[in-house]
C-alpha cells in the first residue's frame, strides 16, 4: 500500500489557497495529521477521499491516479468526515446497510459484520432505534462504524474523537492500532494527545503547507533540550509570552507554573522531557 500525494494545491481564488504545493508519501501504518484549525487538514483529506479535486497536482494510490480513477480509491476507502450527518429516520442497522450498498458490498456476511461492528462500538442495544434519537457520541460511533464496513485498505478519520467520552477514546485508539496492521490509517486532529500515543508517523500542517513530516522521535528532536518549567508572577505573564513560547500554564497560589520553549531560558528554570505537543506548538508558532 502506497499513497503518494504530489505537489497538490487547492486554490479557491487568486490569493487564497486551501492547500499549497503539498507533497507526502504515506505507507502502511498510522499517519497522524496535526495542525491548527484552518491548516488545510480537512481539505487534504477530502481530496484523498475523492470528495474534492485538487486544482493542481496528482494523488496516486498503488500506481493508480485516483483523480482519473476515483472508484479505485472508493472501493478500498473508509472515510469519517469531520462534520457529517445521518438520516434521522433510519436506524443504525438500516443506515449501515445503506452505506454498505453505496460502497458496493453485501452478501451473507454483511449483517453479521454490521452486528459485530455495532457491538464493538457499543451500539448494539440502540441498533434498531432511529438515529435521530442518538446522542452526539453515538452518532460519531455510527460514523466510525460505516468507515469500517468494507474492509478498508485506506482509512481516513477526520477529527474522530469529537463527542467521544474518555473510555470511548481509549477503545477507539485500540481499534485504530488494530486497523493499522493491515492498512493505511490517516488520523487528523488538532488535539496532540489523540495522536501521540498511536501514530507511527506525524505530519504537521499550517496555512495549507506541510511544515514537517516524519516519525515522532525525529520531530521531537528538533526542540530537544529547549523545553523548561518555571514559576513566575501573574503580572509577568504578558512579558514572558513575548519572549518565549508557552506550552501550558497552571495556577499555584499567587504564582503561575509555566512550561515553555526557549533557547534562552530563565535562570531558575528546570529542563523538562520534550514531547510531541511541545514540538507541535513550537513548529506551528515559528512557521
Amino acid at each position: 500500500m502506497k499513497l503518494e500525494i504530489q505537489n497538490v494545491s487547492k486554490k479557491y481564488n487568486r490569493n487564497k489557497y486551501g492547500l499549497k504545493d503539498f507533497s507526502i508519501t504515506i505507507e502502511k501504518g498510522i499517519l497522524g495529521l496535526l495542525g491548527p484549525n484552518g491548516a488545510g487538514k480537512s481539505t487534504l483529506l477530502k481530496m484523498i477521499a475523492t470528495v474534492s479535486k485538487p486544482t493542481e497536482g496528482i494523488i496516486i494510490l498503488n500506481k493508480n491516479n485516483i483523480l482519473k480513477d476515483a472508484n479505485y480509491m472508493r472501493k478500498q476507502l473508509g472515510f469519517l468526515p469531520q462534520d457529517f450527518g445521518v438520516y434521522p429516520n433510519l436506524n443504525a442497522v438500516e443506515f449501515l446497510e445503506y452505506m454498505a450498498a453505496m460502497k458496493g458490498i453485501g452478501g451473507p456476511n454483511l449483517k453479521p459484520r454490521i452486528n459485530q461492528i455495532l457491538e464493538g462500538l457499543n451500539l448494539l442495544d440502540a441498533a434498531h432505534k432511529p438515529i435521530g434519537s442518538y446522542s452526539g457520541g453515538m452518532k460519531q460511533r455510527v460514523g466510525i462504524a460505516q468507515a469500517l464496513l468494507n474492509n478498508p485498505k485506506i482509512v481516513i478519520f477526520d477529527e474522530p474523537t469529537v463527542g467521544l467520552d474518555p473510555e470511548e477514546r481509549v477503545r477507539f485508539r485500540n481499534l485504530i492500532s488494530d486497523l493499522a496492521n493491515d492498512c493505511i490509517v490517516i488520523l487528523s486532529s488538532h488535539i496532540v494527545s489523540d495522536i501521540d500515543t498511536i501514530a507511527d508517523k506525524v505530519a504537521i500542517m499550517k496555512n495549507g503547507t506541510l511544515i514537517t513530516h516524519g516519525n515522532q522521535e525525529t520531530i521531537i528532536k528538533k526542540i530537544q533540550g529547549n523545553v523548561f518549567k518555571t514559576s513566575i508572577d501573574k503580572t509577568q505573564l504578558a512579558d514572558f509570552k513575548n519572549r518565549h513560547i508557552i506550552v501550558s500554564t497552571s495556577r499555584k497560589n499567587e504564582k503561575l507554573n509555566v512550561r515553555y520553549i526557549s533557547s534562552q531560558p530563565l535562570e531558575n528554570s528546570i529542563k523538562k522531557e520534550t514531547n510531541l505537543e511541545d514540538a507541535y506548538l513550537y513548529l506551528t508558532k515559528i512557521n
Binding site: 453485501g106 452478501g107 456476511n109 459484520r113 488494530d178
Partner: peptide
C-alpha cells in the same frame, strides 16, 4: 430517547469479523 449504556461490550477484533463480499 436512547439511553447511553455505560457498560462496555467487548472490543472489536477486526481480524475475526466476517468480511462482506462485493455486491
Amino acid at each position: 430517547k436512547v439511553s447511553i449504556v455505560k457498560e462496555f461490550s467487548k472490543e472489536i477484533e477486526l481480524i475475526n469479523i466476517p468480511k462482506a463480499s462485493l455486491n
